[in-house]
Design a binder for these strands. Structure first.
Lengths: 169, 169
DNA sequence: TGGTCAATGTAATATTGTAACGTTTGTATG
DNA sequence: CATACAAACGTTACAATATTACATTGACCA
């Protein structure tokens, strides 16, 4: 399942679908998707790219929600806990998740050309981690993989066309 | 799989070895391991665990170096660029690298029990990323993998069996 | 000897994130 | 309904992390 997000698609549709899914999941779980939380998630879907906490806060504040940092951080905590949003540590930013239904680690391709970010899934990496856990006695919780590079659209433009993966050897 | 850092070992030895290696690599490359840079790296090796930038700065300042944030951030930028240090995004902290000689992505096991961090290597993950690059047209640059969990010592301990076979550096 | 460029030092400020505490709201229960 | 309780919310204040801008120093070399 390779990086959908670098392909063209219908934002409007994926946003409304995602919001519906979030509501439905919350109902199932008995989790409360309150107005601030819902709006914060929606903002992330509208942007469809990573947003900083303070970006989200700014909009929330103009819409009648609280204007102080804890407002947005608490909403994000909830959304992350529910799996609707991931934090991209490298960017100090937050991105709505494509597939909140399955519990998964966050894996991203981050384009340093256009600053778009695509979430991806990869079974081989999951297996490799399981193997590490088994071999070392380390009990794995949450894992995040953040890969910086150039997306297909940008890798032609920039000079460095090399495809050396540094994470290997 | 080599998660050395969770095993007992001789800090003094790995620190002096690492410093010698750094000096030698810089000489080769014509890079200038100036006093601040060298001392910052040494502090990371003395700690042998992730340190915040301001932790390092505090010590540097007491030792006669500059006392303002850019002092430490510039030193860290250099050390990271040379591959001597990795940033652990999740912790906003910096850790000296075991094996600066080979250009590699940063992969960590982060114990949320004792807060120790081990860098590790894994070929399968590198291969998986190369595959993704090939399949998606994404040109991979730097990648970081940060795995949170519990180290053998903290995970409740059923480690009587032979998982502790590793000898430290 | 003077030019120049990297490295350093400092002040000021920006950005990101938390702690603490009181108020409101939803909900279950007598 | 009354009321007790916990979750969620809002705000103030502050902590932690990082950057911009600019002046100074020092090494190198034409």
């Amino acid at each position: 399942m390779t990086s959908l997000a670098f392909a063209k698609h219908n934002h409007d549709r994926c946003r409304t679908d995602a919001m519906a899914e979030a509501r439905s999941i919350c109902k199932e779980r008995g989790a409360r998707l309150t107005p601030v939380r819902e709006r914060a998630l929606e903002l992330l879907w509208e942007a469809h790219r990573p947003l900083g906490a303070y970006d989200i806060l700014e909009t929330l504040a103009t819409e009648g929600f609280g204007s102080q940092p804890p407002v947005v951080y608490r909403a994000l905590d909830f959304l992350i806990e529910q799996g609707f949003v991931h934090k991209i540590e490298r960017l100090n930013a937050f991105l709505a998740c494509d597939c909140p239904a399955d519990d998964h680690g966050a894996k991203f391709l981050i384009c340093i050309g256009c600053e778009r970010v695509a979430e991806f899934e990869d079974k081989a990496i999951g297996k490799a981690l399981d193997k590490i856990a088994a071999g070392s006695g380390f009990a794995i919780g949450r894992a995040t993989l953040e890969v910086e590079g150039l997306c297909p659209d940008c890798s032609g433009v920039q000079s460095g066309s090399g495809t050396e993966s540094e994470i290997g050897d």
